[in-house]
Simulated assay, not measured.
Amino acid sequence: MIYQHTQIGWAILAAFAAVAVLMVGLMLIRPSLILDIGILVILLAFAIVFGTLTVQVGNGKVRCWFGPGLIRKEFDWVAIDDVSVVRNRWFYGWGIRLTPEGWMFNVSGFDAVQVHLATGKRFRIGTDEPEKLEAAIRQGMEEVDRDV
């Protein structure tokens, strides 16, 4: 394994927590228990699924996944033409987004690594370690070039 890092989306988790606190407050004012508990369970599920983003580089692939891995994406090194450190615009937001530059996975901040694929498509991976991630992907790409 060349690289592995899990970034915690503190802003996303704080937003989910704020809504959960609001829901509990509303439950005290106007109890509609089944609906409120249902919403709290959904919030908890979203926090678990989208609260972290893990990126792994190694074994011929770049992999990234949210939370426990229900939502994931992977690229073979041979499918990657180039990689670059980029800065996302504030309005691209967090989560899974389709941006003008292609799809994006992000849980926090504005820094990302953009993977340029041989197909012409691009994919952004949000990270708080953009230079390390870019270097790891480049290292993997160089290993492919040496093997060819």
Rank of each mutant, 00 (worst) to 15 (best):
residue 81 D to S: 14
residue 96 I to F: 04
residue 39 I to D: 00
residue 22 L to G: 15
residue 77 W to H: 09
residue 23 M to S: 12
residue 24 V to I: 15
residue 122 R to N: 08
residue 130 P to C: 14
residue 87 R to S: 12
residue 33 L to P: 00
residue 44 L to W: 10
residue 58 G to F: 01
residue 128 D to P: 06
residue 23 M to K: 09
residue 36 D to F: 09
residue 27 M to S: 14
residue 19 V to F: 12
residue 35 L to R: 07
residue 107 V to H: 02
residue 71 I to V: 13
residue 37 I to S: 06
residue 116 H to V: 07
residue 97 R to T: 10
residue 134 E to C: 14
residue 27 M to V: 00
residue 14 A to Q: 07
residue 125 I to S: 04
residue 78 V to A: 15
residue 96 I to D: 01
residue 101 E to P: 05
residue 34 I to H: 07
residue 96 I to V: 11
residue 134 E to Q: 12
residue 85 V to E: 15
residue 42 I to H: 07
residue 73 K to N: 08
residue 119 T to W: 13
residue 51 G to L: 01
residue 109 G to R: 10
residue 57 V to A: 04
residue 39 I to S: 06
residue 56 Q to T: 15
residue 115 V to P: 01
residue 16 F to L: 14
residue 101 E to W: 10
residue 72 R to I: 03
residue 81 D to A: 13
residue 59 N to D: 07
residue 129 E to G: 05
residue 60 G to S: 03
residue 67 G to H: 03
residue 87 R to Y: 04
residue 73 K to M: 11
residue 43 L to D: 06
residue 90 W to V: 14
residue 61 K to I: 02
residue 19 V to W: 06
residue 23 M to P: 00
residue 100 P to T: 04
residue 110 F to T: 13
residue 105 F to E: 07
residue 32 S to I: 09
residue 120 G to E: 00
residue 124 R to W: 06
residue 113 V to F: 02
residue 68 P to W: 00
residue 111 D to G: 00
residue 81 D to G: 08
residue 77 W to K: 07
residue 16 F to D: 05
residue 30 R to T: 15
residue 63 R to I: 07
residue 64 C to R: 06
residue 118 A to L: 13
residue 86 V to I: 15
residue 40 L to M: 09
residue 15 A to C: 11
residue 78 V to Y: 13
residue 26 L to A: 10
residue 43 L to T: 03
residue 121 K to N: 13
residue 20 A to E: 13
residue 85 V to M: 12
residue 43 L to G: 05
residue 43 L to K: 06
residue 91 F to L: 15
residue 31 P to D: 13
residue 108 S to L: 10
residue 38 G to C: 07
residue 107 V to P: 02
residue 73 K to Y: 05
residue 45 A to H: 09
residue 103 W to S: 02
residue 28 L to I: 11
residue 25 G to I: 02
residue 34 I to Q: 12
residue 26 L to E: 10
residue 116 H to W: 08
residue 105 F to Y: 11
residue 122 R to M: 12
residue 108 S to G: 08
residue 42 I to E: 00
residue 63 R to T: 11
residue 119 T to R: 14
residue 88 N to C: 12
residue 52 T to H: 04
residue 69 G to S: 09
residue 107 V to W: 02
residue 84 S to M: 12
residue 134 E to R: 11
residue 95 G to M: 08
residue 29 I to N: 09
residue 58 G to Y: 03
residue 126 G to V: 08
residue 134 E to N: 08
residue 109 G to E: 07
residue 47 A to M: 03
residue 87 R to L: 08
residue 23 M to E: 11
residue 52 T to S: 14
residue 49 V to Q: 15
residue 124 R to G: 03
residue 122 R to A: 06
residue 28 L to G: 07
residue 66 F to R: 01
residue 45 A to M: 13
residue 44 L to E: 07
residue 29 I to Y: 06
residue 28 L to T: 09
residue 27 M to E: 05
residue 109 G to D: 08
residue 64 C to L: 15
residue 126 G to L: 14
residue 49 V to Y: 09
residue 63 R to Y: 04
